[in-house]
Design a protein around this nucleic acid. Sequence first.
DNA 1: TCTCTCTTGTGAAAGCAATCACATACTCCT
DNA 2: AGGAGTATGTGATTGCTTTCACAAGAGAGA
Lengths: 205, 205
Amino acid sequence: MPTDKVPDIVVGRLPLYLRTLNYLIEEGYEIVSSHELGRRLGISPAQIRKDLSHFGEFGKQGAGYDVKYLSSQLKHILHVEGVWPVALVGCGALGHALANYNGFVTKGFEITLIFDNDPAKIGQVVAGKVIHDVADMPRLICEHGIRIAIVAVPSSAAQATVDVLVRCQVRAILNYAPINISVPPGVQVQNIDPAVHLQRMTYYL
Amino acid sequence: MPTDKVPDIVVGRLPLYLRTLNYLIEEGYEIVSSHELGRRLGISPAQIRKDLSHFGEFGKQGAGYDVKYLSSQLKHILHVEGVWPVALVGCGALGHALANYNGFVTKGFEITLIFDNDPAKIGQVVAGKVIHDVADMPRLICEHGIRIAIVAVPSSAAQATVDVLVRCQVRAILNYAPINISVPPGVQVQNIDPAVHLQRMTYYL
DNA sequence: TCTCTCTTGTGAAAGCAATCACATACTCCT
DNA sequence: AGGAGTATGTGATTGCTTTCACAAGAGAGA
Ligand SMILES: NC(=O)c1ccc[n+]([C@@H]2O[C@H](COP(=O)([O-])OP(=O)(O)OC[C@H]3O[C@@H](n4cnc5c(N)ncnc54)[C@H](O)[C@@H]3O)[C@@H](O)[C@H]2O)c1
Ligand SMILES: NC(=O)c1ccc[n+]([C@@H]2O[C@H](COP(=O)([O-])OP(=O)(O)OC[C@H]3O[C@@H](n4cnc5c(N)ncnc54)[C@H](O)[C@@H]3O)[C@@H](O)[C@H]2O)c1
C-alpha cells in the first residue's frame, strides 16, 4: 500500500535501515528477516515491516528481504542512488575533518565546494579541493546547482551563512554550529551538537 | 507536579532549552515567556510548559521564566552543574577537532583523557593533553573515574572499543562511528553520523 | 502432493505525545 | 486600589506511533 504521506519519523529511520543493510551485504548476507534487522538496530520487527509497508512490498513471506534489493529500493526512496554535490562552509578543525572524511561518497554525497572567509585559508587545497572565498559562494553554488550544504562556521556567523545559502537555492542544511537557525518553509535542517547529545545522557547518570 | 517518570523525548529537549536560555542570558534577557522560547526553538509554547511541568514550577504567571534561574534549574536536572571528565578514544581528524573544541566546558564537559592505538600518535600532545595508548585505557579510565566517553575510531574498531569502555564503568557513550553498537542495559548511547542526517533530508528533495 | 514452519503485510488495539483551553495568578498602568 | 492584560500549569482532548495478532504466501522435506 504505497505512499500516502509518510511520517517524518519513519523517513528518519530509513537511513539507519540502509546503513545496516549495506553492512549485511559486506558480510555476505543475501536474505534478512525483519527480526534480524530489528535485532541489529534495536528496533522491533513489527516496526520495520510497518515502516517499509509505507513504500511498497519488498519482502517475501516465509523468507524475508533480499538484502541487495531492499538496499537499492531504500536508496531510490531516499534519493541517494547517485551522488549529490555538497558545499562545505567553514574549513576550520571540523571542516577539515569533514572534507577529508571518506565515508560520504558511498552514502550518496561528495563535498565539491569548500568556502571560508579567512584570507589565510582561501586558496589553500584541502582534500584535493581549493578553499574558495565566501564572497564567491552565491555564484559558485548557483553554477554548480548545489542543493545541499554543511555549515561548520562559528555560531555567530551561522544564521547569516544559512540565509545566503537559502537564497542560493540550497534546500538541505546540515548545521554543526550550536545554535538554532531559522529557515523558510521547504528548507530542511538537521543539527549536530555533541554537547546536546552528551547532556541527553547525563540526565540518566 | 514533579517527577513521575519523565519520557525520554522530554529529556531530549531539555538540552535545547538550556542552550537557548544561555544565549538569552548573553543577550541580556532576564525574563522569557514560553512563547518567545518556543519561537526561537520552533516548538509550541504549550509543549515547553508541559515539558518543564514534569520537573516543577519554574515560571511566574503573568510574567514568564527567570532566564538565569531556569537555566540553573535545567543544569541541575541534567546533572551538568559541574564539569564531567570525558575520555576521547581515537585521535584522528575528527578526534583532533573534538579535542580542540572549546564549546564543551561551558556545557559541562571536558576531555581529560585521549587514547589512540597508533604508535606514531601515542605520546603526542593534542590540546594540551597527551595521547595515551589504548592499552592503558582500562587503568586510566578507572583511576580517573570516567563515566563518559566519545568514540571516534574506525567502524571496525568501534564495538570492541565500546566493550572495553563498558567494562571500565563508562555509562554514557557518544559514538561517531557509522555503525550500530550494542551495549548492556543501563548504558546510554548517542550516535552521530552526518551521512544519516543528510539522507534524512534528501528524501524531501 | 501434503504438511509444517517460517515470515511478511496489515487492520485493530494500545500506548504515547502534542495541543487545546481555561482557571489561576501576577504585572502594569492609571 | 482596581481593572486590563498577560502568561503559567494542567486536565481533557486530539492526534500520532508502536505493538499486537493473524491471514496469507513461500519454501523445505517426506
Ligand atoms: N571542532 C569540533 O569538534 C566541533 C564540534 C561541535 C561543533 N562545532 C562547531 O562547528 C563550528 C566549527 O567548529 P571548528 O572547531 O571547526 O571551528 P574553527 O574556528 O576551527 O573553524 C571555523 C572556520 O570558519 C571560518 N569562518 C568564520 N566565519 C566565517 C564566515 N562568515 N564564512 C565562512 N567561513 C567562516 C573560519 O575562518 C574558520 O576556518 C563551530 O560552530 C563549532 O561550534 C565544532
Ligand atoms: N572525519 C569526519 O568528519 C567524520 C565524520 C563522521 C564520522 N566519522 C567517523 O569517525 C571515526 C573517526 O573518523 P576520522 O576521520 O577521525 O578517522 P581517522 O582515520 O582520521 O582517525 C581514526 C583514529 O582512530 C585510531 N584508531 C584506530 N583503531 C583504534 C583502536 N582500536 N583504538 C584506538 N584508536 C584507534 C587511529 O589510529 C586514528 O588515529 C570513524 O569511524 C569515521 O567513520 C568521521
